[in-house]
């Protein structure tokens, strides 16, 4: 059974629909990438999972449970975490406090999780008492992911993690995504950098105009001529 299933979703930000019939699944342990031109509704599709848009029609299930239209706070508790594209760290809080905020809804003892995150992102350990706003762009992305991982989610939603980063950091970020996935966490990622994203993805979706256009395994999409012409720069 799929971990996440979006079925025939219509919705947007209160005005006209941005999504018109999106279908998408993520299986446990998978990396799934959504690509598509600007305005295709990629980020919107991702936000729909997290209760951040108005769903007009359709259904979203997580682990078999209907989570359509649940408030964000409750979706977090189901074990889904979301890393927004921009403004994804608390700049005035320290790195460590950012991680603590990630575990905000946890009531169990999560002290050990800090070490796991710091092991995954060693640069953060030595900067744990620095305000996140003082970090470099790449390090901020680590904080953003680290914050989300504090919940030990089963599914991580990542919105364009490499946008605005220097090429040097882009590979680093994709490596991080792979490392996170290796911990057994399924990843759903929206990415402009289609070639590199598909290279690490198990499966991918191509969205245009709020609808599914293609759906295949990562390698197959990479090899697809039409996809290549549209998004991979020929």
């Amino acid at each position: 059974m799929s971990l996440l299933a979006i079925e025939d979703l219509y919705g947007g930000y209160g005005g006209a629909d941005i999504l018109s019939g999106v279908r998408l699944t993520v299986d446990p342990g998978e990396i799934v990438v959504i690509i598509g031109p600007n305005g295709a509704g990629k980020s919107t599709a991702m936000k729909s999972v997290f209760g951040l848009i108005t769903v007009r029609q359709g259904r979203i299930t997580f682990d078999g449970k209907d989570i359509t239209r649940l408030p964000t706070q409750q979706i977090v508790r189901h074990g889904i975490c979301y890393v927004p594209q921009t403004n994804n760290v608390f700049t005035s809080l320290t790195v460590h406090e950012n991680l603590e905020m990630g575990a905000y809804v946890r009531r169990d003892n999560y002290a050990g999780q800090f070490d796991k995150v710091y092991d995954l992102f060693p640069p953060l350990r030595e900067r744990r008492n620095r305000p996140a706003g003082h970090l470099s762009g790449g390090q901020r992305q680590m904080v953003a992911m680290g914050r989300a991982l504090m919940m030990e989610p089963r599914l991580l939603l990542v919105d364009e993690p490499t946008a605005g980063l220097a090429p040097l950091f882009i590979d680093q970020i994709f490596q991080i995504v792979k490392d996170v996935n290796r911990l057994g966490i399924a990843v759903l990622m929206v990415e402009q950098n289609a070639k590199k994203a598909l290279a690490i993805a198990h499966r991918g979706y191509v969205l245009t105009l709020g609808r599914n256009r293609h759906e295949d395994t990562g390698p197959n999409l990479l090899a697809d001529r039409e996809v290549a012409e549209m998004f991979l720069g020929g």
Binding site: F50, T72, V76, R77, P84, L93, M101, Y104
Partner: peptide, 10 residues
């Protein structure tokens, strides 16, 4: 600091 992110964090 960041209302949206706070909400996302639960």
């Amino acid at each position: 600091d960041n209302v949206d992110l706070a909400r996302i964090s639960g």
